[in-house]
Write a protein that binds this DNA or RNA. Structure first.
Length: 800
RNA sequence: GCCGGAGUGGCGGAAUUGGCAGACGCCCGGGACUUAAAAUCCCGUGGGACUUAUAUCCCGUACCGGUUCGAGCCCGGUUUCCGGCACCA
C-alpha cells in the first residue's frame, strides 16, 4: 500500500466525525474515563508544536481507553480572555470578540487537522455569555460566603500593562505577561481568600496521584510553617508589638526588633516618634524600589531606628530598640519580627551594620564571625539553659509564653490571598455594585451574566482605571438592596478565573440551569487524568483546586479534589537546543510538518523524540525517520496474507502488546514506539505475516497514528472502525521464549553468552555453564569460591 | 542561599528489584538498484590494542572514593547543568 497521507487523513477524519465515535456518550452505565488537557489560549500565532506534544499524551491514552470499552470524555475548549487579544485589538482596532472568534476558528481547524479525538460537541469558550455567567456565579457565591474582600494594600503592579497582578502572576518580580519589572503600589484590590483553603489544598495532596515534583512545588508555594506568635510590650504604652517566629527558643537572644516600613504602629505613634521625617523618607524610598531591587540587593541591609519607641522583651524584661527595614515584609506574619542576631543571618547582618549587641543563646558556632543557625545547648537563657534540643527548648518557651499570656503557637503560610481584579477590558466583569448606603452589594443572581459592554476604545485609563469606567451606561445603576443610585465595579477578573472551573463545564456544557447537572458531575468527576505544563502548577492548578474545594463546600460538586491524577509534558526546544522563539527564528509550525509528512508522522514524532516529561530539541531528520517508519508500516499491507499466526513472530507479538500496553499507561511513549519499530524490523526479517497479525499491529499503533491504522484495519478486513476495535490482549505464557540467552561471568567479568532452555533451574544453569567448553580455560588450576545464578540473567563463577 | 531533578556514543535517548551498558531512531561510512540523483534496500557504526581474518584483550555511564561475586543504578564526597522558591522571620 502506498501511504498517501493527505487522502487517508481526510477520509478517516470525515468517517470518525460522521459516526460520532469521539462523542462522550450519555450512557452513564458504562465505565468512564475523563482525560483532560489544558485548553489553549487562542493566540493569533496559531498552534505551536508544544500544544501538539501536550495534547498527544492523553490523546493516545484516550484512544486506547475507547478501545478498552470506556466511555471517554476527552474535551477541548478555549481560554480566550486575556491581554494579548486585548492589546492586539487596541493596536489594530479590531474588536477583541472578533479577534477571539478568528483565533478560535484557526485553532479548531488546526486541531482537527492533526486528528485529535476531542469531543467537538462539548467545546467551551470562556468568553461566551453562557460560560462566564457561571464564572460570575461562582464569584458571587464566594462573595456570599465571605471569601471575597476588598483592601487597600501594597500590591504587585505592572506599569507597562497598567494592571494589578497577583503574587502568582509576578513570580521573580517580573510581570507574567510582558516580563517587565513589577513595582509595589498602593491600590484598592479585590482579594479571594485562598489562604483560608491553604490547609485543605495541602492536605488534599495526600490523596491525589500527582507527579512528586508537582506536589512538592505546590507544597512549597503554600509554604506552611509552624511557629509562635508573641507580644512584645511597647514601653510606656498599653500597646504590644506582635511578632511571628519559628524560633521562640531564642527569645533571650533578642536584642532589637524590626518592623516593615508600612507597619501601622508608625502612624499610631507619629506624635511620640521623634524622627518621623527620617522614617517617612525611608518608607518613600522603599516604595520606589522594584521587587527586583528589593530581592537582588539582599546583602545590603538598610533601615532606620525608631526614636521614641522601645519594646520590652517578654522573656527577660529588657528594653530593646525598634527599627524599620524593608527586609521585613508587611505581607508575611505580622509585619514585625524579634531579631536574634546571634542565630539569624539577616538579623546578624543588620546588627553588625547598626552596631547592635549580639548575644549567644545556642552553643555550637562562633558568633564573632557569623550567625549560628544550628542546634546546640541553650545558654544565657535563664530557665532554658542546659536544654540541648531545639524541640524541647521551643516547647518550654511556648509553655512560658502561654502561662504569661504573651504568646501562643501559630501557623503561617507563604501563600497570599489572591489579588483578583484587573484593570482591563477583555475579562469577566466583576458582579459587584458599590452603593453609597449599602456598601458593596452583589449583582443579583438572576441578572447574571453581567454582560461586558460593547466599546470602541478599550485602552486602560491613565490613572490605572479599567476601560469600563468610561462606559456610563454600564457604571451607573441602581442598588439592588435599597434602590438608590449606585455604581458598578469596573474591574474585570484575571484570566485564571475562567480556567478555574472549565473541566466542570465539559461535563454538561449546554446546561442553562446550572454550571453542570448533578448527574453529569457525579458521573464524570473527578477528572481521571489531567496533563499540562509545569508552568501552571503554582497558578492554574492551585487556583482551580481552590475553586473546586469551595464548590465542594457549598455542595455544588460531589468530590473535593478535582483531579485524581496529574502529569506534565516537557517542552519542545528549537533544533539549536534553546527555547523556541520568534526572535531566534527556531519556531516549528506543526501544520507545516503535517502538510509535509502527514499528521500521523507529526504525532508519532512528538512522542518518540524523547522522554515525555523532559525537554527535548526538535530535529527535522528524526521526523523523517518517523516518516520512514510509517511508510514501512504501510508496506506491510502488501506482505500480509491469510489468517492465523506466524510461529516465528508469535512471541514477539505478545511481548510487544504487553510492552506497548504498559508503556502507554506510564507515558513512556518513546519506548512504546521503539518496541513497535523493533517488531516491524522483525516482521521484515521474517518476510511475511498474516492479516490477523497486521490487524494487531494496526490496533497497537492506532492511538499514535490513527489515520494510517484505520486504513490498514480496513485493508485487512477489520470489523468496523479501528477506533472502536478491541485493544489487543497478550497471553503471558506466550511472552516468554523457549530458550534464553544468559550472560556468563567469571569473577564478575563477562566472558561469553550462552543459550539455555528458559525453564532451566538455578542449579542446572550453573552445571550447564561449567560443562561449557569455553569455560575450561577459566577454571583450570583455580578454585571455585562461589557460584551465583540469577534465572534468565547471569551465571557468575567466582574463582581464586 | 534553600529545595528538587539530572549528567550515558557524533546527536535524541534505552536499560524490572544492582545482573550482557548503548534498545529504538537520527547522523555518518560502505555497498546494491539507477545513465545519474532522490527514494528504497543491505551491511557497518562507543573508544582503543593486536590480527590477513576469525578470535581475543583493555578502557568506557560527570569526577574521587566505598559497599558487592557483580554498580549507570546503592552509600560518602566533589563538580556541572536544568527547574522551582528566594530577606518567609
Amino acid at each position: 500500500m502506498k501511504y498517501d497521507f493527505s487522502a487517508i487523513e481526510k477520509k478517516w477524519q470525515d468517517k470518525w466525525d460522521a459516526e460520532g465515535v469521539f462523542k462522550a456518550s450519555e450512557d452513564h452505565s458504562k465505565p468512564k474515563f475523563y482525560g483532560l488537557v489544558e485548553f489553549p489560549y487562542p493566540s493569533g500565532a496559531g498552534m505551536h508544536v508544544g500544544h501538539i506534544k501536550a495534547y498527544s499524551g492523553l490523546e493516545v491514552i484516550s484512544r486506547k481507553r475507547r478501545m478498552q470499552g470506556y466511555n471517554v470524555l476527552f474535551p477541548m475548549g478555549f481560554d480566550a480572555y486575556g491581554l494579548p487579544t486585548e492589546n492586539y485589538a487596541i493596536k489594530t482596532g479590531i474588536h477583541p470578540r472578533k479577534v477571539t472568534d478568528m483565533n478560535i476558528e484557526k485553532f479548531t481547524s488546526q486541531l482537527k487537522r492533526v486528528g485529535f479525538s476531542f469531543d467537538w460537541s462539548r467545546v467551551v469558550d470562556t468568553t461566551e455569555e453562557d460560560y462566564y455567567k457561571w464564572t460570575q456565579w461562582i464569584f458571587r457565591k464566594m462573595f456570599d460566603e465571605g471569601l471575597v474582600f476588598r483592601a487597600t494594600t501594597l500590591v504587585n503592579y505592572c506599569p507597562h500593562c497598567k494592571c494589578v497582578l497577583s503574587n502568582e502572576d509576578s513570580q521573580g518580580g517580573k510581570c507574567d505577561i510582558c516580563h517587565n519589572d513589577v513595582i509595589q503600589k498602593s491600590k484598592d484590590v479585590w482579594y479571594l481568600r485562598i489562604t483560608e483553603y491553604a490547609d485543605k489544598l495541602l492536605q488534599g495532596l495526600d490523596k491525589v496521584d500527582y507527579l512528586p515534583n508537582i506536589k512538592l512545588q505546590q507544597e512549597n508555594w503554600i509554604g506552611r510553617s509552624e511557629g509562635a506568635f508573641a507580644n512584645f510590650a511597647i514601653a510606656g504604652t498599653d500597646d504590644v508589638l506582635r511578632i511571628y517566629t519559628t524560633r521562640c527558643d531564642t527569645m533571650f537572644g533578642v536584642t532589637f526588633m524590626v518592623i516593615a516600613p508600612e507597619h501601622p504602629i508608625i502612624e499610631k505613634y507619629r506624635d511620640r516618634i521623634t524622627n518621623i521625617d527620617a522614617l517617612d523618607a525611608y518608607k518613600d524610598e522603599c516604595a520606589k524600589k522594584t521587587e527586583f531591587e528589593r530581592t537582588q540587593l539582599v546583602k545590603d541591609k538598610t533601615g532606620v531606628r525608631i526614636e521614641g519607641l522601645t519594646a520590652i522583651n517578654p522573656a527577660n524584661g529588657k528594653e530593646i530598640p525598634i527599627y524599620i527595614s524593608d527586609y521585613v515584609m508587611m505581607g508575611y506574619g505580622t509585619g514585625a519580627i524579634m531579631a536574634v542576631p546571634a542565630h539569624d543571618e539577616r538579623d546578624y547582618e543588620f546588627a553588625k551594620k547598626f552596631g547592635i549587641d549580639i548575644i549567644e543563646v545556642i552553643k555550637g558556632g562562633d558568633i564573632s564571625k557569623e550567625a549560628y543557625t544550628g542546634d546546640g545547648e541553650m545558654v544565657n537563657s535563664e530557665f532554658l539553659n542546659g536544654i540541648a534540643t531545639k524541640k524541647e527548648a521551643i516547647e518550654t518557651m511556648l509553655k512560658y509564653l502561654g502561662e504569661k499570656g504573651v504568646g501562643e503557637k501559630g501557623i503561617q503560610y507563604k501563600m497570599k490571598d489572591w489579588a483578583f481584579n484587573r484593570q482591563r477590558y477583555w475579562g469577566e466583569p466583576i458582579p459587584i455594585i458599590h452603593c453609597p448606603h449599602c456598601g458593596m452589594v452583589g449583582v443579583p443572581y438572576e441578572e447574571l451574566p453581567l454582560r461586558l459592554p460593547e466599546m470602541e476604545n478599550f485602552a486602560p485609563g491613565e490613572g490605572g482605571e479599567s476601560p469600563l469606567a468610561k462606559v456610563e451606561s454600564f457604571v451607573n445603576c441602581t442598588c439592588p438592596k435599597c434602590g438608590g443610585a449606585a455604581k458598578r465595579e469596573t474591574d474585570t477578573m484575571p484570566q485564571w478565573a475562567g480556567s478555574s472551573w472549565y473541566f466542570l463545564r465539559y461535563c454538561d456544557p449546554h446546561n442553562t440551569e446550572a454550571l453542570a447537572s448533578k448527574e453529569a458531575l457525579e458521573y464524570w468527576l473527578p477528572v481521571d487524568w489531567y496533563n499540562g505544563g509545569m508552568e501552571h502548577v503554582t497558578r492554574h492548578l492551585i487556583y482551580s483546586r481552590f475553586w473546586h474545594h469551595f464548590l465542594y463546600d457549598i455542595g455544588a460538586v460531589p468530590v473535593d479534589e478535582p483531579y485524581a491524577k496529574r502529569t506534565a509534558q516537557g517542552m519542545i526546544l528549537g533544533s539549536d537546543g534553546s527555547k523556541m522563539s520568534k526572535s531566534l527564528g527556531n519556531v516549528v509550525d506543526p501544520i507545516d510538518v503535517a502538510d509535509k509528512f502527514g499528521a500521523d508522522v507529526l504525532r508519532v514524532y512528538v512522542l518518540f523524540m524523547g522522554d515525555y516529561g523532559s525537554a527535548a530539541p526538535w530535529n527535522d531528520d528524526s521526523v523523517r525517520g518517523c516518516k520512514r517508519f510509517l511508510d514501512r508500516v504501510a508496506g506491510l499491507c502488501d506482505m500480509a496474507k491469510g489468517s492465523g499466526v506466524t510461529a516465528k513472530l508469535e512471541t514477539s507479538f505478545h511481548k510487544t502488546i504487553k510492552k506497548v500496553s504498559s508503556d502507554i499507561e506510564e507515558m513512556k511513549f518513546n519506548t512504546a514506539i521503539a518496541a513497535m519499530m523493533s517488531l516491524l524490523n522483525e516482521i521484515y526479517d521474517c518476510g511475511s505475516l498474516t492479516c490477523d497479525e497486521l490487524g494487531i499491529f494496526a490496533r497497537l499503533l492506532y492511538p499514535f497514528a490513527p489515520h494510517l491504522c484505520e486504513e490498514i484495519w480496513e485493508t485487512v478486513g477489520g470489523n468496523g472502525l479501528c477506533a472502536v476495535a478491541e485493544w489487543p490482549v497478550w497471553d503471558e505464557a506466550k511472552t516468554v521464549d523457549s530458550t534464553i540467552e544468559i550472560a556468563v561471568q567469571v569473577s564478575g567479568k563477562l566472558k561469553f553468552t550462552k543459550e539455555i532452555p528458559a525453564d532451566t533451574s538455578k542449579e542446572d544453569a550453573i552445571a550447564l555453564v561449567k560443562e561449557d567448553e569455553r569455560m575450561k580455560p577459566f577454571l583450570e588450576g583455580k578454585t571455585i569460591v562461589k557460584e551465583i545464578s540469577v534465572p534468565g540473567k547471569i551465571v557468575n563463577i567466582v574463582v581464586r
